[in-house]
């Protein structure tokens, strides 16, 4: 079932406890970190997920109001622009056939899809976590807080990208659970970081407070 040497029984038990959800917050965070970095532990977790999956029959299906619009608004904050309206003024002057020919002839070639970039910002022992999604086509970054709490009064969280020269450049403050900001030119391999700053952000233009979470930008 696994390509790895068997885990010590203690670790396999921990994997089972993690999958069952028995652990407290600190133990849970440790197990999650091990899952990310230890393939053998990750395989044990997957094996327990599969082993216990018949219990999923114990969860009822419960109809829920349509949450898809809210989810899509979070994930795809910039509405897709309708592009075809430009020919409307001419439509009356052309027959349908001529219109079809005209559209084929005039429509620009499809823009090649630019793959989105993502990053997960987290740190060991840190409840705060963010998911970032970068749309290179329109140069925006959507940041969603997936764990932890906003900064307390008198403080702000600030987002940074670490450039190739190692110098952090500010991408602005993070005051909402989800937010979209302009961020052109981000590339895979760059590091995003969130630091804790005085209210209003770093007074120096460089991080002054502790860096709480980081994540590497990756394709996809």
């Amino acid at each position: 079932m696994s390509d790895f040497a068997p885990l010590p029984p203690e670790d396999d038990a921990l994997a089972a406890e993690y999958v069952l959800g028995l652990l407290d917050t600190a133990e849970r965070a440790t197990a999650e970190r091990r899952r990310r970095v230890e393939p053998a532990f990750a395989a044990a977790v997957t094996a327990w997920e599969n082993r216990l999956s018949p219990l999923n029959a114990g969860f009822d299906e419960v109809p829920v109001r349509n949450l898809l619009p809210a989810i899509e608004a979070r994930l795809f904050p910039v509405a897709e622009q309708p592009r075809r309206r430009w020919f409307a003024p001419f439509a009356g002057a052309l027959t349908a056939a001529a219109l079809a020919v005209a559209i084929i002839a005039v429509l620009p070639p499809p823009v090649p899809e630019v793959a989105p970039l993502t990053a997960s910002l987290a740190a060991e022992g840190q409840a705060l976590a963010f998911s970032a999604r970068i749309d290179p086509a329109d140069g925006t970054l959507t940041l969603i807080r997936t764990g932890g709490a906003p900064a307390e009064a008198g403080q702000d969280l600030q987002l940074w990208v670490i450039g190739a020269d190692g110098v952090p450049a500010s991408l602005g403050l993070i005051r909402e659970a989800e937010s979209t900001r302009p961020a052109a030119g981000l590339t895979p391999g760059q590091v995003l970081a969130v630091s804790l700053e005085p209210a209003g952000g770093s007074p120096t233009g460089q991080p002054t407070g502790p860096v709480l979470v980081t994540g590497v930008i990756a394709e996809g």
Binding site: V64, R65, L67, L68, A70, I71, R74, L75, T118, S120, S131, R133, I144, T146
Partner: peptide, 14 residues
């Protein structure tokens, strides 16, 4: 649970 489901599908997409 509705809040959780929104977050879950966000993670699923990501």
């Amino acid at each position: 649970a509705e809040d959780a489901v929104q977050e879950v599908y966000t993670r699923v997409w990501l």
